[in-house]
Design a protein around this nucleic acid. Sequence first.
DNA 1: TTGAAAGCGCTAACAC
DNA 2: GTGTTAGCGCTTTCAA
Lengths: 333, 333
Amino acid sequence: MKKRVLISDIAKALGISVTTVSFILNDKAKEKRISEALTKRVLDYVKKVGYKPNQLAKSLRTGQTKILGLLVEDIANPFFSNVAKHIERRAYEAGYHIIYCSMDNDESKAKELIQLFIDRQVDGFIITPSEGLEETISHIKQSNIPLVLFDRFVPSVYTNYVVSDNKHGSYEATKHLLEGQNKRIGLISLYSNQTQMRDRLDGYMEAMDEFRMQSFIKKLHMETPDEEAKDQINEFVVDNKLDAVLFATNYLAVKGLKALKSCKVALPKMVAFDEHTLFKLHDPSITVVSQDIEQLTRELIHTLIAEIEGKLKEPRQLTIPCELIIRESSISL
Amino acid sequence: MKKRVLISDIAKALGISVTTVSFILNDKAKEKRISEALTKRVLDYVKKVGYKPNQLAKSLRTGQTKILGLLVEDIANPFFSNVAKHIERRAYEAGYHIIYCSMDNDESKAKELIQLFIDRQVDGFIITPSEGLEETISHIKQSNIPLVLFDRFVPSVYTNYVVSDNKHGSYEATKHLLEGQNKRIGLISLYSNQTQMRDRLDGYMEAMDEFRMQSFIKKLHMETPDEEAKDQINEFVVDNKLDAVLFATNYLAVKGLKALKSCKVALPKMVAFDEHTLFKLHDPSITVVSQDIEQLTRELIHTLIAEIEGKLKEPRQLTIPCELIIRESSISL
DNA sequence: TTGAAAGCGCTAACAC
DNA sequence: GTGTTAGCGCTTTCAA
């Protein structure tokens, strides 16, 4: 294991001072009017010996870690793991690294994790705020740590966020079902005050009201065991004689499919929120309201980096359109 | 934003030296025979003011970052995102954080990433080595950076790894198909020298040989566009009049399903490697060789931390059994 | 038992 | 243009 070469080794070898080397390495050569020749000599030597600055020392000195903290609800959910993948790539392109974790809807774990990330001096946070995190988010905001909320936001905290236009997506999906001559359309959602859930409910309601149809809403608890959720879903669909169902999340739709298959009724028409590998392949393939992950993550990273670089005067609050992807599950054959 | 309190602030406030505070904070109180009373006084004060040591300074001094680098093939693959979730939780429990990225089968990206992580002084690596990474892995090993390979290993480098018993899993799956009276059983795999792929091939062969059956093997390129892969799979299955197919990965099976559905032949019997949300729900549900993610990740983190703490004399090379989960796709109705 | 002080490797204010 | 040097906040050796 060869010894790490230090900036002082370079200075010594080239008979110049560390400052000069440091300036050159940090692209301050012309600003400090260091000669082209010397600059080149240093750069060449650096490349030759393969010098890499010690990031820790650099961070300690500058206060910048070039690390971003990503906290998602559940990294194993295909929506979030896809998002994570895009975020990681974009962050990497901008010279940042991602340290992540799943909060698993555990409020105290989430708080602890955020504190841990603050202690690690991440340069910024990307968070899908789960219930009960208002204060913590507010605390980050007050600490002036750059922050972008994602997928949902916290109305009480005026900060950056990038979310999908859930309400309109939900409205379109519901309208699509209504226009397919379905009368009895149910919504299966969660007991949750999160903005994305509320917006999806609003969109559904708006469409139902517009068509003067009675709404049927079933909410489940996040923690409901699968078996029980199954029974509740079946009961909801069968007892209300629903023609169609809108699922507020991809995993609710997955649960719904499992449930409805187990009882031998005909599958109602259905639409799910968020893509899932399953949906394209399922028979019938499942119509979805798809979030634009490319655009969401692009704006997300862009906003966060702008904030880190102090280029943001005001919080940036973006709402990205969703796309309704019509497949077999929502149309009459 | 209140100013961070430093260790020196504590020392000053309590009228003692930084050394003493540091010793107490690092659980060296009794070792250094510091009085209980003082210890308590310091700890209480620390809690009161909410002091958190600066991890950067600590890391710079000790050389330990408490950060682990996780490099997986593709974080968006449900197998890997599941693994990532478990790893993150276990690392967190052991006081470590995870910095991750997807290598996306891009050799140069992978190399760069590994170098970047080394520069960041991660305490250890967890890597699913993709093709062409032998030297880089060997370089990590030679640099004495703790390392555990995962999912597959690099035969030329004698280092820790935790993998599934792919060969036996594949053997069992094939045998299961053979015992179901299928004669013409094909394997769909990848052009790849990775150990897990080789082992899956070996297991298939062994079973086929044992039953004196002719083997049918189709390999695809990772980069083959979906449309083309589809055609190739259909052709392979139809032309060879296969009764059954073993897919060497979950995403190959997903491609296979898409392909076979598009042409109107009856679905052959099938088994896939690795779980996928899709498989349980698909009609027919898909039989899989499932890797034991709980155990794999437990051993993984355990091994890595043992190595970091210098408790490992010899590389630990573990092979964890797979489980064949029989569903509808492989049995006659 | 406790304290003083040397550094970990780097940046940048200040001096020349 | 380039060099000297004081820290960033912490751990740990050595001395008392």
